[in-house]
Structure formats: structure tokens, C-alpha cells
Design a protein around this nucleic acid. Structure first.
Lengths: 232, 232
DNA sequence: CTTTTTATTTGCGCTAGCGCAAAGAAGGAT
DNA sequence: ATCCTTCTTTGCGCTAGCGCAAATAAAAAG
């Protein structure tokens, strides 16, 4: 796939960039393809590139020294990832790993190059800052959730959030379709796949959702919202 | 207290600001005093100012709809807080509350004014971005910690982190002194004051720390690191 | 010095959620 | 069609951690 400057315009951080800026970015970047299950980078790697996903899905995850991992975020096309390294002046490392969930292509922009652009183009820096503030807020909210809410609330919340992100409103009778495994949900909510499985089975019995292998269909979002709010 | 531009230079975000910039900031800002227990702002308030703490200590915390709260961070003099609103263009709200732990004074900078500075002074924007990336990384790490580590590891980690921040190396025989309540520690680590109390009592029996009312002295940091690493 | 307030400790019972293990279900590959 | 891999379900026992309640300790107020 050949990426044009017009394509790049849909990247939130580049929404105010000029065509000249965008072409400069394209000229200095390379395209990387990655098959399903591969890693664009590993936690701890030196952050020499940041990426714009152009097709596929990528999950950002962090693991602790024992190898247990948490999902921080799923990246969809035209979203940026691995950007933290572009800002830190020292030879910074990626704080998370980026693994593809399907075959992917991404534009790899050298961190140093983007940094030079940020220093001279305040409008790009500003949009990147806006993105960062929303990350901070989301992480703070999720942190609070993990600290104060029970597992069923967190799982319900995660499903609601995912349904909102995917945005696919196939709300006929099939409900809102999500494709992820119990393990994925567990890693997003700080619990175990067993507990997730038990919860989903329960909700299916009650008719709130329908489940399948790596598939969750939300039939009754309203009930999930009630659970998420703790009105058990 | 009268603040000079020289004072402002110790603020990380203003380290590359010119004297002219700093004086402009001072001219557009006001000083606010707040007695112990008061709030500079509440979660949900419109974010019309950001603050530079000039004396005292402030804790940033977030509460869920049921009123349970978590501590996000403690602010020390010459650190900035409430900055997220300066970036968001809409009439944004503070995502957290800022409560003083002692009598405090702070410089209140209008968000709109700082925003105008950011738009024209890339070096300030860049330093703010650097600060934001460190926040994101810290929140991600704490999130992972909360999701994957047991309570004793999290509490040990919190003490280590606090000891590092306060930086007071009174490492004679008294150890590193921290002044916070069991409740504070609980809110920092997503647990309850009972559990924190039991843990601290246990560690005191083992001689790793000494405790008192709103006081924790770390005698043997090395043991805490072992606990934090999960080598129980 | 006495009273009041606020912080801490600890016993006790309880349950939410963990995690092994083993069986089932759904695809994919050959 | 058959095998193999991967994902899911569920029984079962267990324990980490919660949270009430009551006692104690330390500081603050009077």
C-alpha cells in the first residue's frame, strides 16, 4: 500500500500539519509489515521509531519481571503508537511491547526526525500533547477503577469501552460484536481468564450477552452499564 | 512570599523559559494560599488555572461515584499540577481533586494564558511533553503493578518510591523518614488501612521499618526491595 | 491536667476471586 | 474424515485480603 499525505491527515496528531510537513514525514519514514503475532517492538527496546498503524490491529502490553502481562491499549488504523520515545531526549526505551493481532502494516517514523519537527512546529506538538493528556486521564481512570471496583464492574466497563471504540453498531438482533478471547479480557481488567469465563457464562444465562470462541456479542448494553455502575 | 522569575526557573517545565517568559507568567498569575485540608480544585471543576506549588504539600486524588478514592500523586514545591486543562481546547474539567496536606501557597496561572505561551514557545511545550510522558509511564507501571502484584509488593514498592522522592537521606540510625498515615498508603496502593497496618506491624517486628503515628521510618530498604520483587 | 479527637492495632469471621485440573467445543491442518 | 491445537467451561478447594468492632495510643484542644 502506498501512503499519501492525504492519508496521514487522518492521524489526530497530524490534523494541523501542512502538506509540506506531511510529505516531509513520508519522505523520512519507512513502511513496515508484520504478520499476526509479531512484534513491532518489545518493552525495553531502544525507542528509535514511532509508528502510525495503516492496517490491522496492534495491542500494547506491559509485562512484569515474572512475565505476567497487562493490556494497556489496542491500536486501530491511523492511530499513533510508540510515541513516548520521540519526546524523551535520552536514549529512551519503549515502556511497553507492541504485538499485532492480525497482519499489519505501519509507517515507521524515526524518533529523532519527529522530535525535530516538534521543536519547530508548535501545532503538531500541541496536538501530540492533547493526545497525551487523554492517555493520562484514561490511565488514571483505569487505575482508579482497578483500585476501587470489583471484577464484574471492571469487566462490564471494559466491554462497554470496547463496544464504544469499535463503533460497529450492528445492533440488529446480533448485538454489538467484539472479537477477543477471555484471556484478552482478563489482561485488560487485571483478573484471570477463569473468572472472566465464569462471569460471561453468567451474563449469557441472564441474556445480557451471547458468547462464542473469541467472540462476545452484547445484546443488552443497558444491563452492562448497570453492572459497571455497581448496582448489582 | 514574593516569587521571582529566578524561583520559577526551578520548575521543570520552565527550565528553558527566558527571563522575559517567566516575568510574563508572573505578571499574569496570582498567588493562592490554602490551609491544611483545603482544596485548590475539585474533580470536575472547570480547569481554568494550573498551579505551581511554592510551599507545602498537595495530594492529587480521584474518587469514584461511591466516594472511594485513590491517591494519584503527591506534589512537592516547584512542581506543577492541574496542567491537563491547559492543553485541552474545550472547557475541560480537572480529572482529579487537589487537597493540601499542610498549609500551602501556590502560583495560579490561567490555563488560557499558558496555552498561548505553549503555542508560541516550543521549548516550553517540549518540556511539558517530557513531563507528560513520564506521567504516562508512571501510571502505566502502577496500573500493571496493581493488576499483577500482591498487596505486600505494592506497599513495599510505594514506600521505596516515596523514599526516593522525598530524597531526605537521614540514613543515620533513624532510617529514611516518611510522614503519612496508613490510610494514605492504602489509597496509594489500592488496599485498605487495615491491611496496611497489619503489613507494617509485621515488617516492624522483623526490623525492616519503625512506625509511629503518621510516620514510617525505613531501616532496611534492601529487605523492602526484596519484598517488592516478590522474593517473599 | 482532663477531655476530645484522630490514628492505629488486632481479633475474628467471611467471601471474592484465584488457579489447578480435567473435560468439552471449535476451528485448522493434513 | 481425523488429528491437533487452541480456547472455553466448570467443579473444587483454598487463601489473600476485606471490613466490622473494640481496644489502645497519640496528639490536640480546652
Amino acid at each position: 500500500m502506498n501512503i499519501s499525505s492525504k492519508d496521514l491527515k487522518q492521524v489526530v496528531v497530524f490534523q494541523h500539519a501542512t502538506d509540506e510537513d506531511l510529505n516531509l514525514i513520508l519522505k523520512n519514514s519507512i513502511t513496515r509489515s508484520m504478520e499476526e503475532g509479531g512484534f513491532f517492538f518489545l518493552q525495553g527496546d531502544e525507542a528509535i521509531h514511532l509508528y502510525i498503524l495503516t492496517s490491522g490491529q496492534v495491542k500494547l502490553m506491559q509485562s512484569n519481571p515474572n512475565g505476567q502481562q497487562v493490556n494497556l491499549r489496542t491500536i486501530y488504523p491511523w492511530q499513533m503508537f510508540g510515541a513516548l520515545g520521540a519526546v524523551r531526549t535520552d536514549g529512551a526505551a519503549y515502556p511497553a511491547s507492541a504485538q499485532t493481532l492480525e497482519d499489519c502494516t505501519a509507517l515507521a517514523i524515526p524518533s529523532l526526525f519527529l522530535r525535530s519537527m516538534l521543536e519547530t512546529r508548535p501545532y503538531i506538538a500541541f496536538d501530540l500533547m492533547t493526545l497525551m493528556t487523554s492517555y493520562i486521564q484514561e490511565m488514571q481512570a483505569r487505575y482508579r477503577e482497578l483500585a476501587t471496583e470489583r471484577v464484574e464492574q471492571r469487566v462490564a466497563n471494559a466491554l462497554i469501552r470496547l463496544a464504544g471504540q469499535s463503533g460497529i453498531k450492528t445492533e440488529k438482533e446480533a448485538g454489538i460484536e467484539l472479537s477477543l478471547s477471555r484471556q484478552d479480557v482478563a489482561e485488560m481488567t487485571g483478573t484471570t481468564l477463569y473468572t472472566v469465563s465464569r462471569l460471561l457464562s453468567d451474563w449469557e444465562r441472564k441474556g445480557f450477552i451471547k458468547t462464542g470462541r473469541e467472540r462476545i456479542a452484547i445484546i443488552n448494553p443497558h444491563e452492562l452499564v448497570r453492572i459497571a455502575d455497581g448496582q448489582v
